[in-house]
């Protein structure tokens, strides 16, 4: 089961349909079961059941998750695969000691893969949809995988299957989510 975490400003917010449900659709299409939980409602039981986690993005002005970063402390000891999307990448960065910095992009953007990784399926570059005000200054255990002209686009933990992407793969780059599921054995 894939745990899909809603990082919106409150449970069942107006951002749910826009940032969470498209990810649910991709995961189900790939053949995986999933469960949606708001970030304030994560407990040991659901983490034990989850085979992997996807932390979803939020609306451009929705940064409450960063003020409540303590809610994500479970990530420090979580050994299973995690994909953090936009807000989710910012959460991964903050939990492991990095920082968020202003770097805004909106719309389709060219992305260059700067460190080969199975997540990108052999691609050297691609275009993806951006909707963010901030990017990250990743902490030491993370390596940068991709850049745009302006911002860091993707990171990976050096020792654990923890990925972050600042772009929104649910828009025209669904393959990134599918690759994450396949390469980590989360779907057949």
């Amino acid at each position: 089961m894939i745990l899909i975490v809603d990082l919106g400003y409150r449970e069942n917010s107006l951002g749910l349909d826009e940032f969470v449900m498209p990810i649910v659709h991709i995961v189900r299409e790939a053949g995986a079961d999933c469960c949606i939980r708001h970030f304030t409602d994560i407990d040991e039981d659901i983490l034990r059941q989850a085979d992997g986690v996807i932390l979803c993005g939020t609306a451009l002005r929705d940064n409450l998750f960063a003020d409540r970063i303590g809610e994500f402390a479970w990530l420090e000891g979580f050994e299973k695969p995690v994909l953090g999307i936009c807000a989710g990448m910012q959460v991964l960065t903050l939990i492991f000691g990095g920082s968020i910095e202003a770097c805004g992009e909106i719309g389709m953007t060219d992305i260059r893969v700067t460190a080969a990784d199975p997540l990108f399926d052999g691609r050297d570059d691609f275009t993806a949809y951006e909707l963010h005000t901030f990017s990250v200054k990743p902490p030491e255990p993370f390596t940068v995988l991709a850049h745009s002209d302006r911002c860091i686009q993707a990171v990976r933990h050096r020792a654990r299957p923890l990925y972050g992407v600042i772009f929104h793969p649910e828009v025209r780059s669904e393959w990134v989510v599918t690759r994450f599921l396949h390469q980590n054995g989360l779907v057949a």
Partner: peptide, 27 residues
Amino acid sequence: SVYQATRVQRICAGLGLWCFNPLWHTD
């Protein structure tokens, strides 16, 4: 429509407003 969504998002960002698309990529 990425064309429409991108442009409305940019306008809202410039005006300091939230932007929601509740039908975005809906089934």
